[in-house]
Design a protein around this nucleic acid. Sequence first.
DNA 1: TCTGCATGCAGC
DNA 2: ACGCTGCATGCAGA
Length: 623
Amino acid sequence: MRPVAVLSMGAVARFRATSEKPMGAVLRPAATGQNGEVYVLVQQASDDEFLVDMLDDAGTALEAARRLTPAAFSSLVSSVEPGTTALRWVWEDTSHIYPALLAEGIRVQRCYDLRLCHVILKNSALTSTSDVALAAPGRWDLASSTACDQAEPRATLFDFDVTSVDDSAGNSALREFRRQLDAVASAAEPGRLRLLLAAESAGALTAAEMRYAGLPWRTDVHDRLLTRELGSRVAPGTRPARLEGLAQRIRSELDDAALNPDSPQELFRALQRAGLAVTSTRGWELKKLQHPVIEPLLQYKKLSRLLSANGWTWMESWVVDGRFHPDYVPGGVVTGRWATRGGGALQLPKQIRGAVVADDGWKLVVADAAQLEPRVLAALAQDTSMARAGRGTDLYAGIVSSGVVATRDHAKVAMLGAMYGATSGESGRLMPRLARAYPLAIALTESAARAGERGEVVTTRLGRSSPTPPPGWHESQAQAYDPAATATDERRARSQARDWGRFTRNFIVQGSAAEWALCWMAEIRRELTALSRADAPPAKAGESGSSAAEFGPPGTRAPFDSAPHLVFFLHDEVIVHTPAVHAADVARIITTAAETAGRLLFGDFPVDFMLTVATVDNYAQAK
DNA sequence: TCTGCATGCAGC
DNA sequence: ACGCTGCATGCAGA
């Protein structure tokens, strides 16, 4: 194979000779700190040139850097993938480089995303004295170039002087990678960080693949759902029949023929004129009132939301060729959760999930981690009582049967209150009982809150640290101790301190849960790949690469058209689209992956991560 | 007319 | 006085 010749035969032999290792083994290397991986650092030096460095797992170059044309680079990737599992592609920005490979029908198994990992290491308390953390803000701190590209296309992937790339002294990506390796190696618990960086990078690959494959979406079903709820489709800017009818009822109940129910101000005044003591027009506030206008008004709000957020306009702008392609943003949330850009993929209302339909002969396997955050909290705090409450059962039900509270709803409200920092209401009242039953778990949330109130940083299980408080926060805290401080100063400072305490309290739980979910998904992805490889020969590179469309026409999205693959992720939930014959295998893979993720994060601590798994034809049938 | 902010609501 | 989001829309000021 000609492309392989760009690497020395010895290096290729080393690739091939390295045996298959389970993710855990690679992510938790032996005490030597060496994990036997080969890194291939890739930079795009210009439009028609890639620079490739081969490195061992200490960052030492194995041979001189190579220059490759884009075509040679693609061939290189497709020739060493998928045969080698101990190889990790190192590049600046997965969201930029990987879509181009996918469009050529090439998948990669593992990567190291320098930008995402930089952010973690820069902020982590575990690497706070490293060069990465101490370096002045630079291009590694910028947001993904994907966003910039849309506004202002750049000629090259990296904005730096091409002529300085060649020697390693001027090779900033290589320098950065070595800095990051050093930071991890000198951390107190490098294994946790290595796992986090690998999981974050695997997430970046998964995000690009899910966007490329897309979530199966039947616009005909969607249209039927909309028509049933709203009436037939009408021109944008006009109300469908059901919505207009409700608007009329609202006008007549409020005795205001000109009222526009879409205007919060008009609506607010009209409600007050009708004698309703409201402070806003929020739905949950209206729900508490008794008045003939409330029912049609709430209905109007619900339908109007459906129309504006996920109506026909949404359908036409986001569903192409029967797939919804949301743009996932790994690391987009401070806690480590993913964000999305465009299409509102994090907020798909239950109302329209029926439009997510498996292809003919295919199934959707929908899996959801049950009570993920409380289970993560129990494990973080090593609270065996709380873990026991969730063993083999719904954790909230377990809390009830332990006699801590009377109903499942109370258990849930109390737990959420503990994790979010509720102080009042039902949640606040139930907290003492929770604290008595689960002192370790509650002590952990409380100490995270106290740390935040003091302006300190807290850190997740694998080493993602919270940001420092916003500008001015420390000043107003200090000011509150000044003898000249007014009561208002003190009140404001106290309030800001408690706000930040609630943030850090939630950060460790939400962030650690996000880490569990990343590991879960990475395991699922790896096992699905192994499953499809056993089942079918790998797709040939370049098969669909000539397609002009971003995602390729239906039937050519190799290798996603023939094998099970992830199509959706939402914090603690995944959907796999799979040929029906593999559905049972997929369900088993997902379940096993949850157990593995639990072990990767928490070792032998006896906590169950239970799932609800459903194999269905459409998303609405799950749950 | 454009832009930034507030509101309200969808998800976890 | 309960954490993290994204997005459409209305509204006010430039």
